[in-house]
Simulated scan of single mutants.
Amino acid sequence: MAEDAGREPVAVLWAFVVREATQGSPFAQAFVEIEERRYGELLDDALSSGFELAGGDPPSTSAAVLVREEQLVELALAGGHRGWTTAEPPLLSADWLAAAASRQLVVVVLLPPGTMAQATGAPMPADPAPGIGADAFMGAVDRARSAGRVFHGIARLMAV
């Protein structure tokens, strides 16, 4: 679940992926899917931060991914004016943290509601980590991207 300052908790699914790069060290990706009733707000915040429709290289944004030790603490959007926090911070793998730290950035990918359920067959708020195979997950992401429903951007990594 996620909480935005002063608001009720919202169901959020996260998936963390390390991708090999054609040059240099691997990079960290954070896939974010939020429930339908708050998706518009998250998307507005992301667009205000400089996110664009996924296709080609992700743009640099004013967003930041805040991490404390091995946990994601917050996705800061809209130039840092809006934070999307997680009531139960997800744990991050050592490989993901190393990839994020080596570049000091994270590619954040916003998925439309229902994307991860397509890969697992489970409704929100299922935990995507153990139940999603890589092929099923990327297939669902590719279908959403082809439909013009995936947004992405490069966020700064910040230790807090």
Rank of each mutant, 00 (worst) to 15 (best):
G148I: 06
P125A: 13
L43D: 02
V65A: 14
M158W: 08
T85R: 13
V12A: 09
M1R: 13
D142L: 03
A126F: 11
S146T: 08
P123M: 12
L105H: 11
I154K: 01
V10N: 00
Q23H: 06
A119V: 05
G83C: 01
R82N: 06
E52M: 10
A15W: 15
L111I: 05
E52R: 15
L110N: 03
E70Y: 14
F27L: 07
T22Y: 08
M158Q: 06
A159P: 00
D4P: 05
T85V: 13
T22H: 04
I34D: 00
D44Q: 06
A147C: 03
A101Y: 04
S62G: 15
A117F: 06
F51K: 01
A119S: 12
L110H: 04
E35W: 05
P26N: 01
S60L: 14
E20F: 10
P112W: 04
L13Y: 08
V18P: 03
G55D: 14
D44F: 06
V65E: 07
G148S: 01
A87T: 14
A2Q: 11
A101P: 00
E20R: 12
L157P: 03
V18E: 09
V106S: 00
M1C: 09
A28H: 08
V67T: 03
A155Q: 03
V18L: 08
R145Y: 02
L110W: 14
G24A: 00
P9K: 05
G56L: 07
R103A: 14
A99I: 13
G80A: 08
R38G: 00
T86V: 14
G114W: 10
